[in-house]
């Protein structure tokens, strides 16, 4: 799984930090900070959850999986 995060689109809602704190944090400006662009399998469910809960479409999974 490869994760993409776009700080230009991000609105800083913080939903990804709740859904997958191992993979997402927020920068000082409040936008998404990708901690791990290739998260281990154990985090995949949480990452998918984070993508679904992202209000702005700032995080995505460019490859299927």
């Amino acid at each position: 799984m490869r994760v993409h995060a776009d700080r230009e689109i991000c609105v800083g809602a913080g939903n990804c930090v709740f859904a997958a704190p191992e993979v997402f944090d927020q920068n000082d400006d409040g936008t998404v900070e990708l901690l791990d662009p290739r998260p281990a399998a154990e985090h995949h469910d949480n990452v998918r959850d984070a993508v679904a809960r992202c209000p702005s479409g700032a995080i995505s999974l460019p490859e299927p999986g």
């Binding site: 609105v11 913080g14 939903n15 930090v17 709740f18 859904a19 959850d49 809960r53 209000p55 702005s56």
Partner: peptide, 23 residues
């Protein structure tokens, strides 16, 4: 229930700014 991607805080660019505070 496993947390859902509900829209109680809205969705899109106007998603509640204070959601982390409210939570």
């Amino acid at each position: 229930r496993k947390p859902t991607s509900h829209v109680a805080f809205g969705h899109g660019i106007h998603h509640c700014l204070g959601a982390p505070l409210a939570r």
